[in-house]
């Protein structure tokens, strides 16, 4: 890891933290538990396509722990860890297959982010009834995934030049 990468990683952590804070202040409330825009996923996407996979995994973990310690409690940290973890796994796999562009990877990230959160909620509440939200969570994850993928693509093409210098 060179100095430029380290500097960018620090910047990404700060950005992801700010975006999580914005989402915490302005939550998406459409009456569906587990539905999140996942703004911080934008930074994760950009990091994945610029600084690299290992760095992106550390970025995700640092973000979840920082946000959890600052705004939430243990159960909230558990939700976001499951969401972020599953989402990142899906994105890493999708990216490695080489079959999808930034958009496809981002869509999978968005969908699995919501699925991860609902799975933890089902375990915590000991109810299977949350499963009925799955279709809505898939649709929301797909829409936010397309939007985030679009923006991430714009940013990535501009930031990438910096790493080639």
């Amino acid at each position: 890891m060179n100095n430029r990468k380290i500097a960018f990683l620090g910047l990404f952590v700060a950005l992801a933290f700010v975006l999580s804070y914005i989402e915490y202040m302005l939550p998406l409330n459409i009456g569906i538990p587990g539905a999140k825009v996942g703004l911080a996923n934008l930074v994760v996407m950009v990091a994945l396509y610029t600084v690299g996979e290992k760095e992106t995994i550390s970025l995700s973990i640092i973000r979840v722990v920082l946000v959890g310690l600052t705004f939430g409690n243990l159960s909230m940290m558990l939700y976001s860890l499951a969401g972020a973890g599953l989402s990142l796994c899906a994105m890493l796999i999708a990216k490695r297959t080489g079959r999808f562009s930034v958009t496809g990877v981002s869509v999978l990230g968005g969908v699995f982010h919501n699925i991860g959160q609902i799975i933890v909620a089902m375990l915590v509440l000991e109810t299977e009834s949350l499963l009925y939200y799955l279709p809505f969570l898939i649709v929301i994850g797909t829409i936010t995934g397309v939007l985030i993928g679009f923006v991430a693509n714009l940013i990535t093409t501009r930031v990438k030049g910096v790493f080639k210098m």
Partner: peptide
């Protein structure tokens, strides 16, 4: 966007719609 991305989005939306209708 690649062709695969569009297929992925279509499959996800179709699966969501089918499950929602089926459940209802």
């Amino acid at each position: 966007m690649k062709k695969n991305d569009i297929i992925l989005i279509a499959v996800l939306l179709a699966a969501a719609l089918l499950t929602a209708v089926g459940m209802r």
